[in-house]
Computed example of a mutant assay.
Amino acid sequence: MENHQTPNVPMVSELTDEARVTFYKKTYTHLAGAVLLFILVETFFFQIDAVVNFALSLTGGYSWLLLLGGFMFVTNYAERLALGSTNTHLHYAGLVLYVIAEAFIFIPLIFIAMYMAGEGAFDILNQAAILTLSLFTGLSAVAFLTKKDFSFLRSILTIGFCIALGLIVAGTLFGFNLGLWFSVGMVVLASGSILYQTSNMIHKYQENQYVAASLGLFASLMLLFWYILSILSND
């Protein structure tokens, strides 16, 4: 997520210790709220057969590519709302829009995971959630304890995600399974994204951008959850 600066608003790194802690609390509170909203929206979606069937109908061939394209468009728009305006209501609109988009695109993966696990469906979801939160917490701790600026990861992540997107498109068009190692590689990329986003929160954001910071962290968290769940579902 590319940051846009607002004139006359101090950077988080320039704040007093107390003000920085307040910013971090706001960011992680909004992140927790986004996760809770995701769970509620996902649960709501699964109560509506038409929504589930529609999402599942988009998982094959060109439909899946269109869905990914639509998700990327919504992601870009949500980020612009969260970062490109001084209107707090637009910041929240961007975050909520992104959470709803994530909940929709997760429908096929969660459906498959529940189908494969049978009676153990909730166990596999809980395992994926615990592993995701554990890894997220550990990576966040690394960023906070070292206080290192991980902005150098941006170019690496950009190249990695472009390669991954190319493989996804090729796999969809030519009908081959990307397999376990692709998911493992994506877990590594998602982990790097968490370090990058946490570092940005510490060094790059302004005092009024806690919603945007939470959106960036939420996106990385959900990417990690997606591929950990994919790995567990294929065991």
Rank of each mutant, 00 (worst) to 15 (best):
E2S: 12
E2G: 14
N3I: 14
N3E: 08
N3Y: 05
H4F: 08
H4L: 15
H4S: 10
Q5Y: 11
Q5C: 02
Q5A: 11
Q5L: 13
T6M: 02
T6P: 00
T6I: 13
T6N: 01
P7Q: 03
P7L: 04
P7V: 02
P7D: 10
N8Y: 06
N8A: 11
N8L: 04
N8H: 11
V9F: 00
V9G: 01
V9E: 02
V9L: 02
P10Y: 02
P10V: 12
P10G: 06
M11R: 10
M11W: 11
M11Q: 09
V12E: 01
V12A: 01
V12S: 00
V12C: 01
V12N: 00
S13L: 12
S13P: 02
S13C: 06
S13G: 01
E14D: 15
E14P: 00
L15K: 06
L15A: 07
L15Q: 08
L15D: 05
T16Q: 04
T16S: 15
T16L: 08
T16I: 06
D17Y: 02
D17A: 14
D17R: 02
D17E: 14
D17I: 09
E18Y: 07
E18N: 11
E18W: 01
A19F: 03
A19Y: 00
A19Q: 15
R20Q: 15
R20I: 09
R20N: 05
R20D: 05
R20L: 04
V21E: 11
V21C: 00
V21I: 10
V21Q: 10
T22Y: 05
T22S: 14
T22R: 14
T22W: 00
F23S: 07
F23H: 14
F23L: 09
F23N: 03
Y24E: 09
Y24M: 12
K26D: 06
K26F: 04
K26C: 07
K26V: 03
K26E: 07
K26S: 12
K26W: 06
K26N: 13
T27S: 12
T27E: 11
T27W: 03
T27F: 03
T27Y: 02
T27A: 12
T27Q: 05
T27R: 00
T27D: 10
T27V: 15
Y28M: 14
Y28H: 11
Y28G: 10
T29R: 01
T29S: 13
T29E: 06
H30Q: 10
H30V: 12
H30F: 14
H30I: 07
H30T: 10
L31Y: 13
L31C: 05
L31Q: 03
L31E: 08
L31H: 05
